[in-house]
Simulated assay, not measured.
Amino acid sequence: MKNIFFCPEESNFYSNCLDNFVLRNCQKSECIVEFGSGDGSPVINSLLKNRFDGVIHGFELNTSAWKVANLTIDEYNLAQKYIIHNSCLFESSQPDAEYLVANPPYLPAPDQDICMPLLFGGIDGATVTNELLSLGYENVLLLVSSYSNPESTIHHARSNGYRVINFIVLPLKFGYYSSEPKVKNHIDKLRENKMAFYSGDYYFLAGVLFQKSKESKLDLSHELAQVMTSL
């Protein structure tokens, strides 16, 4: 369906980040909040591989994606573990949770009039990502794009008391949505202002675990910034 986000490589990467940075670390019945669940496939794939006994509350505005996700959730009998609300997290009563996770909209563009408006991440692509880091959750797993002003996200995270505890990076080729002329031309302009970083047809997508914990002094923010701006 054209009105549902589709990129298997990115979805698999997000699922792997969930496995490695969140679900394997859950020792009890934690609650997780997810922003922008899409068709639910990344979380569903992770739940089928992990012994997670908590609840994930997803929030998805796209009604078509929400319906598809719920069909799959029912098919795999995961309704007790994965509950997706057809509403906006920012406008909802937010559940208390140990983790906030998201593959947030990160397409930069002059405005929302693009192929899939729900993928619009603001003029620099980092707006929604940075808003999620303002909600106050102790642990936040986000996918961060190298062409979406990644340095601003790292600075914003630090100003909100977060450290980068872990990250993994995937080189990705510009795809269907990011290759739309309006989007790609805007990314080119951001690059001129050192707000977007890519090489040829490739950019970096990082799965980043931000944490507010005062127990750990580990902070990989500098290393993440170096990687994301190296293209």
Rank of each mutant, 00 (worst) to 15 (best):
D219K: 09
T63Y: 11
F35H: 13
Q226Y: 03
K194M: 08
T229E: 01
G122W: 11
L61P: 04
Y203E: 14
E9R: 09
N160A: 12
S216Y: 06
I83W: 02
F6S: 14
L220D: 04
V33Q: 04
D124G: 01
S178D: 10
D201L: 12
S15G: 12
S37W: 02
Q226N: 13
V22I: 15
Q27Y: 01
G175Y: 10
L209C: 11
F174L: 09
Y198R: 03
A69C: 14
S46L: 05
S146T: 10
S178A: 15
A196S: 15
V164R: 13
A65F: 09
G136D: 03
N185P: 00
F174T: 04
L47V: 05
R191I: 04
L23R: 02
M195L: 15
S148N: 06
L135D: 05
A196Q: 03
S199Y: 06
Y176T: 14
L190S: 04
E98C: 08
I123C: 08
T127D: 14
F90V: 11
I84R: 04
E75N: 13
Y14W: 12
Y177Q: 06
E180T: 06
P181N: 09
N45I: 00
L133Q: 01
N185A: 10
A65D: 12
A69E: 13
V33G: 01
Y202Q: 03
D111S: 14
S46C: 11
Y198T: 07
I123G: 01
I154F: 04
S148K: 04
S179G: 07
R51P: 10
K212D: 10
R24W: 01
Y106A: 09
K81W: 10
P117M: 13
N77R: 10
S216G: 03
S148V: 06
I56Y: 13
P104C: 02
S152M: 07
A196F: 06
H155A: 08
S93Q: 12
S87E: 15
H156Q: 11
P150E: 05
R163H: 15
S159P: 00
G40Q: 05
Y137S: 07
C115Q: 13
F5D: 07
C88V: 00
Y162E: 10
F167I: 01
V55Y: 01
I84P: 10
E192L: 13
V183S: 02
Y76A: 03
T72Q: 11
P110N: 02
E60P: 15
V22T: 12
T229H: 03
V55M: 02
A126S: 15
S216R: 09
A65P: 14
D39H: 06
D113F: 14
